[in-house]
């Protein structure tokens, strides 16, 4: 009996969290609805900036969802819709920043740091190995 209550509670919680903030929009079919969800999940709500347009309850996000929905009905592609929003709200609306010279550091920075770290490790190991091969390791090697 108790188990069942717990399961029901968990199920309720799960349903509550998986329900989206999407207001009922008259999609033509399931495929269009999925496309809409996929697109709005990649876009940032300008009001609550840690939420996607799909999830946000903000009024502006709702308006933008309606706008995107209308544009989809007019047959505009995802890229066109994104361009429309970027032209107004800059790359900020995109969760994935586009690759361009200004964002090179953002995209490649972590890789460069990783490579530098790997290089440092290889270099240190080499040096220690050489030192160990020649003379016994000096005592101050492990001083910290």
């Amino acid at each position: 009996m108790k188990t069942r209550a717990v399961v029901l509670l968990l199920l309720g919680l799960f349903l509550a969290f998986s329900a989206h903030a999407v207001d009922p929009l008259p999609f033509k079919n399931r495929a269009q609805e999925l496309r809409f969800q996929h697109l709005t999940r990649q876009l940032r709500c300008l009001v609550c900036q840690n939420e996607s347009l799909l999830d946000s309850q903000a009024e502006l996000a709702q308006q933008m969802r309606h706008l995107i929905f209308r544009q989809m009905q007019q047959g505009r592609s995802d890229t066109q819709i994104k361009q429309f929003l970027v032209a107004r709200y800059s790359d900020y609306v995109l969760y994935d920043p586009p690759l361009k010279p200004k964002t090179w550091l953002l995209w490649f920075g972590p890789g460069v740091i990783l490579l530098a770290g790997a290089g440092a490790v290889v270099f240190t190991v080499h040096r220690r190995r050489r030192a160990a091969a020649g003379t016994p390791a000096p005592a101050d090697m492990e001083d910290w």
Partner: peptide, 9 residues
């Protein structure tokens, strides 16, 4: 309704 304002970002 703030729809025009979206064009202004």
């Amino acid at each position: 309704n703030g729809v025009e304002a979206i064009n202004f970002g």
